[in-house]
């Protein structure tokens, strides 16, 4: 079995990649102003989604994989029909560039953040804005929903990490303990842990209940860009700006694998729904799908 099970590319930097809920499709977002949908089995490019007026920075499957949400530096989010590749809706509201987007695991909500220093929460079905969340003092670099879709975390250039009620928009308080920009956030599947990737190169783990960082994982030589828990919560993946990917034991915090996978910053890592595959998306224009078991051997 190959360590690398698929490699595809955009003609410009790639900012995000997401698996469909059934694990059969992959969506990718690029600075080339498009998102693409790929057949994971064959590597065939099924659709190129054109319409955004600037780079696309986020992708997330909705409605059991029948629709796709994209977020763009053009300050808008769009909803697309996956089957036909046609645009269905556009959501506007951000006053500055969008930097990040996440979707709730129940596929009902989207959250986006950017250079207007606010997080906007969207009803994905109605394609309408639900909340505008203010509290950060600078640009929002990362957003993530908890596994039960009830919590939302947002991280900023100002080194703050805030926790919100996803369904209420209520500010629940800060998650303290960061000394660098908060570039990536993830929640564990059981909802007990959060993890962050930070501009100081560290991966931090913390308790959602106590809202404090409890563990710092060192090892990345520089700017950590992204982090993801495996679906069963046993693994943590992280990557940094010069292409290094690390796998960690989420419980013992042991570094299980370190591999240079890209020639430029890795902007996104994500596990497939069955946890067997991991996708990495990079500014080097490539998207690579890895066999997790092989990475660990």
């Amino acid at each position: 079995m190959q360590t690398l099970s698929l490699q595809v590319r955009h003609p410009n930097a790639v900012y995000d990649a997401a698996f469909s809920p059934d694990g059969k499709l992959l969506a990718t977002a690029s600075l080339d102003n498009t998102a693409k949908i790929w057949d994971l089995q064959t590597g065939e490019e099924l659709h190129t989604l054109r319409g955004h007026g600037d780079g696309v920075c986020g992708v997330f499957f909705l409605a059991e994989g029948k629709r796709l949400a994209t977020a763009s530096l053009d300050k808008s989010l769009r909803i697309w029909d996956v089957g036909s590749g046609s645009g269905l809706a556009t959501m506007s509201g951000h006053q500055q560039y969008i930097e990040c987007m996440a979707g709730s695991p129940d596929r009902k909500l989207l959250a986006s953040g950017g250079y207007d220093n606010v997080v906007r929460v969207w009803d994905a079905e109605a394609a309408e804005q639900k909340f505008v969340l203010s509290g950060h003092g600078d640009a929002i670099y990362s957003v993530a929903f908890s596994a039960d879709s009830k919590l939302l975390a947002s991280g900023s250039y100002d080194q703050s990490l805030l926790l919100w009620g996803a369904e209420t928009g209520e500010k629940l308080g800060p998650l303290d303990g960061h000394d660098g920009t908060v570039e990536g956030i993830a929640f564990s599947a059981d909802g007990k842990l959060f993890a962050t990737a930070s501009g100081d190169g560290r991966i931090r783990l913390g308790s959602v209940a106590s809202r404090v960082v409890t563990t710092e994982l060192e090892g990345h030589p520089n700017y950590a860009k992204c982090v993801a828990f495996s679906p069963n919560g046993s693994l943590l993946a992280s990557a940094c700006r010069d292409g290094e990917l690390r796998l960690w034991n989420a419980k013992t915090h042991d570094n299980l694998a370190t591999i240079n996978v890209h020639s430029n910053s890795v902007y996104s890592v994500s596990f497939s729904p069955d946890g067997k595959q991991l996708v990495s998306a990079s500014f080097d224009r490539t998207i690579k799908v890895w066999n997790v078991e092989q990475l660990l051997t």
Binding site: A13, L31, G55, C57, L73, Y97, I98, E99, G114, Y115, A139, R241, D242, S263, N264, S265, F283, D284, R285
Partner: peptide, 16 residues
């Protein structure tokens, strides 16, 4: 710089 990639992201893309 961001969000269109840092100077260094772009340098790693263009200079090689």
């Amino acid at each position: 710089g961001r969000p269109h990639g840092t100077n260094f992201d772009n340098a790693r893309d263009h200079i090689p």
